[in-house]
Design a protein around this nucleic acid. Structure first.
Lengths: 205, 205
DNA sequence: AAATAAACATACTATTTAGTATGTATTTTT
DNA sequence: AAAAATACATACTAAATAGTATGTTTATTT
């Protein structure tokens, strides 16, 4: 029992530190020795718990990145007392203001990983796709609730709107990475704001 | 004179093949030996023409990626006989349909590179920022022309709209990478289409 | 045509890397 | 309490890597 706890703690430490490094340096640029330095553990510890680098990559996506998307973008949508456009405005614009300088400069961990995978690393692609799908489904549900309540125009296509919100958001976090100020975020929030507000009024066919 | 031509041709070959590899495998995952295999040249040739890997990275961004953005997204905007919303619709949605399977699967080369750079590689960041700025300025001009002609609502913020278009577009090319079909593109085009059409009509304040 | 310089090729070094083999201390099981 | 298994650490191997040093051939200059 005591051993089980220790084992889990070690694994979590390795996963967390791996995430930090992948986020800062990228997946390919991070080596196993890099991870071991950060954890103050040995290579023996790593290979006792994980099969190889690919394995820790998968775990980081499945556990850490998934948790971040869930807590940052899916859970906040369940605050259904709030008006739906307000909710979307909050999740996709207001929250940007609270990002740390580090988060602004490093962008979205999921998106960074997507950028790194080419034809290779098919495993990563599939897990990341699942995460995006979970996010998208939650958004569709929220938009549908908005329609039902009359807060969102019934002509709005929930599915395509959901994808556009995700894409625009991932896009701005990516583009922001090349800037060293918040101009891009501020401009984006203005335009995104009117896009979301427009969901409530009559659309062009 | 003959030598000068040969030299330039060799450099161009190395730059082109490097771009192909960076696009397919990513910058960090591509080694100098990888590049040399693709060009059928030797290491001596590489280091005769370029100082190091970083140098070729810069050249690829400055020359190839810049050319792609210019030809693909800036030049088409100068077709000012066309109605501005139509022009934007063409550049940001219709053209997606003509992408090859390879381009769909690999996403946007510039965006992939942005994803890979963290705090490191400050040089790349600055060049990429310049490219985005050039793109943005061209878009702002186009939108302003649209306003002047009455094709775009005067209340539209040209600058924030330009950034949003770029972000959304980069975002969808990124998100598309994790899918293996065109569903995301199609859904995006619908929503992006109504966003652009909305630029022509009355906005919510 | 001799001297020079440019355009490469080949062979090497030093470092880093993923992954393995083998050890040891600590738990857990029997 | 002995045996076995777990959680690591240390020391290694083999391959890959960026970059250099030193050729050799071809073009250019004098």
């Amino acid at each position: 029992m005591k051993q089980e706890v220790k084992s889990r703690e070690t694994q979590e430490l390795i996963i967390n530190k791996s995430f930090d490094l992948f986020y800062e340096k990228g997946y390919n640029a991070t080596s196993i020795p890099d991870i071991m330095k950060k954890t103050s553990l040995s290579k023996g510890a790593f290979y006792h718990h994980f099969k190889n680098k690919h394995e820790i990559g998968k775990k980081v996506i499945e556990v850490i990145i998934r948790k971040r998307i869930k807590e940052g973008f899916i859970v906040p949508l369940s605050d259904i007392n709030n008006n739906v456009p307000e909710l979307l405005l909050d999740v996709f614009t207001n929250r940007i203001k609270n990002y740390s300088e580090r988060e602004k400069a490093l962008g979205c961990p999921a998106n960074n990983l997507i950028g790194e995978i080419g034809y290779s690393e098919e495993d990563f692609r599939i897990i990341l796709k699942t995460l995006i799908e979970e996010w998208r489904e939650a958004l569709i549900k929220t938009i549908d609730i908005g329609k039902y309540r009359g807060e969102i125009n019934s002509k709005v296509n929930s599915s395509s709107t959901a994808i556009s919100l995700i894409c625009a958001f991932e896009g701005v976090r990516s583009v922001r990475k090349v800037y060293d100020d918040d101009v891009i975020f501020n401009e984006f929030m203005e335009s995104m704001g009117s896009f979301i507000k427009n969901l409530g009024i009559q659309q062009v066919s």
